[in-house]
Design a protein around this nucleic acid. Structure first.
Length: 594
DNA sequence: GGCGTCGAGCAT
DNA sequence: GATCATGCTCGACGCC
C-alpha cells in the first residue's frame, strides 16, 4: 500500500534531494511569455550518404556527401541561412550558399565550425536522433576528425551517442539512440509525429503530404549515389533534394506549433524538455506530484519494487450491444473526463487512502469523514483532507478548459487543429493519472485508487442506463420507451424511439442534464451528438452519420472497423468505406451488399 | 471445420 | 533502467 508520509516519519531512502532540485530548476514565467528580444535560433538539417546499391549506409564505409542546413529565428517566416555543404562541385541554387569540398574530413570540420558560429538553441530534423547525429559522429571518428564532436555548448564536452531500448506499454518497444548536444535542444520531428499523430505512414513524404499538402522532392534512395557520381548538375539535383529535406521539418515544426506546445507541456509538467520525447508519461506525472507534495511538506516514499506486479484488476463495463441497423436517431451521452472526475469527486488519492484500523482508531464517521468505494476501499473525504491528485487534475483540466476556450474563438483552421491537439494532450495527461495508479510495475502504483476508480465507473454507467430507461418511457407520458442500445466505459447510446432529429437532440440534452444532477461534482454527463442512421456491428465496432445540429450532418464516423485500422491493405479500406457510404448516406442497402 | 491461444490494433 | 490502464474483436495458426 502506498501512502505519502509526513517528513518526520520519513525513512532513509526518501527522495528529498530530487524535490529540492526540481524546485530550483523549474522557472515559472508567466503564461505565453516568450522572449522577443533574443529569439531562438533553430537549425534544421539533413545529411545524404553515398550508400552502396541496396545496402543501408554504414558509417565505417559509406561517406557523407552532403549536409543541408536551414536556420530560422523563432517567430520569423523565412529562414535567414540556407546552405549545403557538399562533396565535389555543384551547380548554383537560388538563394542558397554552396560550399564545395574535396575532402570529407574537412567538410565535416567546417560544418562543425558552422554550427558553432550559428550557435543554434534548437536542432531539428527528420530521424536525426537515430540516423543523422550518430552517423556524423561515427563517420567523424572513422575519419579521425577528433575536433568534430565538440559542437555542444559545453566547449570541453564531447558529443557522443548511445543506444538504449525504450519500452513502454503505450508506445511499444523502440530502439532509440541519443546524442548529447548540451545546451542545444533537439527535436526529432519523426519521433514527435510518431508520438502525437496517428498516421498510416511516417515517411517524411507521407507526413508532409498529410500536413503540408506538399510532396517532397522525390529522389529514390537508390538514386543518391548515381546522382552524386554524375556531374555538377546531377549533384545540384541531389542538393536541392537534401535542402528540401532539411527545410520540411522546419515547416512541420511551424505548422504544428511543436515548439510552443512542447514548451507548454514541459512547463505544465515540470520535466526537462528532452524528457517529453525520450521518456514516458510516468516522469511527467511524478514530477507534478513532487511539486505538489513539496508545497504541502510531504515526502514521497521510494517504493520498493514488488516481485509479482502481475495482479490485474477489473476495468470498465462494456454494455452488451443490441446489434443492428438503426434508421432513427441514436443520442450519445458521454461522461466528460470520466476517471479524472471520479478521482476528484470522491477524493481518491495516495494521501487520502485509509484502512479499517485507522478508521477505528480515529473514530471516523462513515460518509462524513470517510467513504467506502464500491470496491471496498476506504478514503477520507475532502473535508478531512483534500487529495493531491484532485489538485493536479484540477490544474490539468483547467488548462484544457482554457485551450478549448481559445479553440472556440480561433478562426484559422490550422491553429484550431493544433489547439485541439493540445487540449487532447492535456486530456491524455489527466487520464494517465489514473493509468499510473494502476501500473503495477511502475514507480508509484496504488491499486486501491485504480480499482476504486473503475468500480465507480462501472456503477455509474449502469446507473445512467437505468435512470434514462426509467424516465423516458411510455408510462411517464413519452411517446416511446427509450432504450440504451450500447455503451462503453463512459458513454451510453440511447435510442429514444423518435424519428425526429431535433427532438432526439433535445431529449439527449435534457437526459444528460438530468443524469448529471444525480452525481457528485465535477462529474458531468454531456450530450455530444446524435448518430442517424447508426450501424452497430459489435462491441467497439460501429458506424454512423454524426449530427450536432439538426440541419446537416457533420461527418461519417466509424469506430473499430477496417476503415480506421491500419493493418489491412488499402483496398479493404476503400471497399468497406464505399459500402458504408451507400448504407448510411445513400441509404441503399442493395448497393452496399455488392 | 470447430476450438483454443496469441498478438495486433483498436475503443475508452 | 526504464515502462499509464483494461476490454474487445478478429485474423492467423496449430491441432485433431
Amino acid at each position: 500500500m502506498v501512502q505519502l508520509i509526513p517528513p518526520r516519519e520519513r525513512h532513509s531512502n526518501c527522495q528529498i534531494e530530487a524535490q529540492i532540485n526540481y524546485k530550483d530548476l523549474i522557472a515559472h514565467p508567466a503564461d505565453g511569455e516568450y522572449s522577443k528580444s533574443a529569439p531562438l535560433r533553430i537549425l534544421s538539417m539533413d545529411i545524404e550518404c553515398a550508400g552502396r546499391k541496396g545496402i543501408f549506409p554504414k558509417a565505417e564505409i559509406d561517406p557523407v556527401i552532403q549536409i543541408a542546413n536551414v536556420v530560422t529565428r523563432f517567430g520569423e517566416e523565412k529562414p535567414f541561412v540556407r546552405n549545403v555543404f557538399c562533396m565535389d562541385t555543384v551547380s548554383p541554387i537560388a538563394a542558397t550558399q554552396l560550399f564545395s569540398f574535396d575532402d570529407e574530413k574537412e567538410m565535416l570540420l567546417k560544418w562543425r565550425d558552422f554550427v558553432e558560429e550559428v550557435d543554434p538553441d534548437v536542432i531539428i530534423g527528420y530521424n536525426t536522433s537515430n540516423f543523422d547525429f550518430p552517423y556524423l559522429l561515427d563517420r567523424a571518428k572513422h575519419l579521425k576528425a577528433t575536433k568534430f564532436p565538440y559542437w555542444t555548448r559545453l566547449k570541453t564536452k564531447q558529443s557522443e551517442h548511445s543506444s538504449s531500448r525504450f519500452s513502454s506499454a503505450q508506445l511499444g518497444a523502440r530502439d532509440t539512440k541519443t546524442t548529447n548536444t548540451n545546451g542545444r535542444l533537439q527535436l526529432d520531428l519523426l519521433q514527435l509525429i510518431q508520438r502525437d499523430y496517428h498516421l498510416r505512414s511516417y515517411t517524411l513524404n507521407a507526413v508532409c503530404a498529410h500536413f503540408l499538402k506538399e510532396q517532397k522532392e522525390d529522389v529514390h534512395h537508390s538514386m543518391i549515389t548515381e546522382l552524386y557520381n554524375g556531374d555538377s548538375n546531377s549533384r545540384r539535383r541531389l542538393a536541392v533534394y537534401c535542402l528540401k529535406d532539411a527545410y520540411l521539418p522546419q515547416r512541420l515544426l511551424d505548422k504544428l506549433m511543436c515548439l510552443v506546445n512542447y514548451t507548454e507541456m514541459a512547463r505544465v509538467t515540470g520535466v526537462p524538455f528532452n524528457f517529453l520525447l525520450s521518456r514516458g508519461q510516468q516522469v511527467r506525472f511524478l514530477s507534478q506530484l513532487f511539486r505538489k507534495s513539496l508545497e504541502h511538506g510531504l515526502l514521497i516514499p521510494d517504493v520498493a519494487k514488488e516481485g509479482g506486479g502481475d495482479d490485474q484488476y477489473e476495468g470498465a463495463t462494456v454494455i452488451e450491444p443490441k446489434r443492428g441497423y438503426y434508421q432513427m436517431p441514436v443520442a450519445t451521452l458521454d461522461f466528460a473526463s470520466l476517471y479524472p472526475s471520479i478521482m476528484q469527486a470522491h477524493n481518491l488519492c495516495y494521501t487520502t487512502l485509509l484502512n479499517q484500523e485507522t478508521v477505528k482508531k480515529l473514530n471516523m464517521k462513515k460518509d462524513e469523514d470517510y467513504i467506502q468505494t464500491p470496491n471496498g476501499d476506504l478514503f477520507c473525504t475532502a473535508k478531512v483532507r483534500k487529495g493531491l491528485l484532485s489538485q493536479i487534475l484540477e490544474e490539468l483540466l483547467g488548462a484544457r478548459k482554457r485551450a478549448k476556450k481559445d479553440l472556440a474563438v480561433e478562426t484559422d483552421p490550422f491553429k484550431k487543429a493544433v489547439l485541439n491537439g493540445r487540449q487532447l494532450a492535456l486530456k491524455v495527461s489527466a487520464n494517465s493519472v489514473y493509468g499510473l495508479t494502476g501500473a503495477t510495475n511502475g514507480k508509484l502504483p496504488c491499486l486501491p485508487i485504480a480499482s476504486s476508480t473503475t468500480s465507480f465507473g462501472r456503477q455509474m454507467i449502469e446507473k445512467t442506463k437505468a435512470e434514462v430507461e426509467a424516465k423516458y418511457n411510455i408510462a411517464n407520458g413519452y411517446s416511446h420507451d427509450a432504450e440504451v442500445i450500447y455503451g462503453d466505459t463512459d458513454s451510453v447510446m440511447v435510442k429514444f424511439g423518435t424519428t425526429d432529429l431535433a427532438e432526439a437532440m433535445k431529449m439527449g440534452q435534457e437526459a444528460a442534464d438530468f443524469v448529471s444532477g444525480k452525481f457528485t461534482k465535477p462529474i458531468k454527463l454531456e450530450f455530444e451528438k446524435v448518430y442517424y442512421p447508426y450501424l452497430l456491428i459489435n462491441k467497439k465496432r460501429y458506424a454512423g452519420l454524426y449530427w450536432t445540429n439538426p440541419n446537416k450532418w457533420d461527418k461519417m464516423d466509424t469506430k473499430g472497423i477496417e476503415t480506421v485500422r491500419r493493418d489491412n491493405c488499402r483496398l479493404v479500406q476503400t471497399v468497406i468505406e464505399t459500402s458504408l457510404r451507400m448504407l448510411l448516406i445513400d441509404k441503399d442497402p442493395e448497393g452496399a451488399q455488392e
